[in-house]
């Protein structure tokens, strides 16, 4: 296959119909942008769920008036239970220090507050291997019955909800990906069809002097591949700019910084570009097959 000639012809087709081709590329870019938006959203939702999901903790708040000397035996009791990975005792003082750290610059709000106003607690990590939401609940339930315990906080049920929400979003992303790519391919193949119309005489003559199908279709397929690739690349650049912009606004807070939000991983971006190119070529190939038969 004479690639040089095919390249030249593809570029000529694009040049001679620049406005249509640019418009098409923009449509492809917008389509990809929608997909990228969904992807970034879904990806980071998953990250947030993972981030909090890692803290598979049960916090057991003890009654403030509970005698200190009971703590070691409680500790032993907890460590001895099934499915417990680690246990950590957090005294009232330590809890207060954490609070101070959390407020950092606005520490003053805690001024005059009794450093012991927070209850002491055990922070219990559940063994990841045995983790499931029902299990965490049943373990937590046991602590609630102990007389020394004031309150049990557990479960991170919202993490579970977030996780299932993020799964739903992921499914939506996959579905939208197919839909959007089909759309992009449709738009591109139609533009190419217009080019083919404009070149019908030339195509007929090329056939008569012995051009192969590959020679005739090559430039059209290449042009659509270029559109798919450049459209998706443009979308990635635009998406990255939007992302950075939004991030700059929202990462003023410590909490969001700690989430380590991210744009799409490189491999993901590469996949978008390639898949977009391939879909556009496939759409065009299908359009041409019906169109460019003798």
């Amino acid at each position: 296959m004479p690639l040089g000639i095919i390249f030249k012809r593809a570029l000529r087709d694009i040049r001679q119909n620049l406005v249509t081709h640019v418009m098409t590329t923009i449509v492809v870019a917008l389509t990809c942008l929608v997909f990228i938006f969904f992807s970034v959203f879904s990806l980071n939702l998953q990250r947030i769920a993972d981030h909090f999901g890692k803290e598979l903790a049960i916090v057991v708040y003890l009654k403030k008036d509970m005698p200190q000397d009971k703590i070691p035996s409680l500790y032993q009791k907890i460590v001895g239970m099934d499915g417990i990975e680690s246990v950590r005792f957090v005294s009232s003082e330590e809890a207060f220090k954490r609070l101070e750290k959390y407020f950092k610059d606005e520490k003053e709000v805690l001024e005059g507050v009794d450093p012991l106003f927070l209850p002491p607690s055990f922070e219990i990590q559940i063994d990841r291997a045995v983790y499931n939401p029902g299990r965490v609940r049943s373990i937590a339930q046991k602590f609630a019955d102990w007389p020394e315990v004031q309150k049990v906080q557990y479960g991170k049920e919202w993490v579970d909800r977030l996780e299932s929400f993020s799964k739903a979003v992921k499914a939506a992303v996959v579905a939208s990906a197919v839909l959007l790519l089909v759309m992009a391919a449709f738009v591109v193949s139609n533009t190419i069809k217009l080019t083919v119309y404009a070149r019908q005489d030339e195509i007929e003559i090329m056939r008569l002097v012995g051009a192969t199908n590959g020679f005739i279709q090559g430039p059209f397929l290449l042009a659509s591949f270029l559109q798919g690739v450049s459209g998706s690349l443009a979308a990635i650049v635009a998406g990255l700019f939007c992302y950075e912009y939004v991030l700059n606004i929202i990462t003023q807070t410590e909490l969001i910084k700690s989430l380590n939000l991210q744009f799409l991983p490189p491999l993901y971006m590469l996949t978008i570009v390639l898949v977009s190119g391939i879909f556009c070529v496939a759409g065009t190939a299908m359009a041409l097959r019906r169109f460019l038969t003798l």
Binding site: E202, E204, R207, L208, G210, A211, T212
Partner: peptide
Amino acid sequence: IPQLRRKVGVIFQDFKLL
């Protein structure tokens, strides 16, 4: 077919030029 047409040079009655 392209192989055939490369073997056969045709001068068309209606030229078929670009």
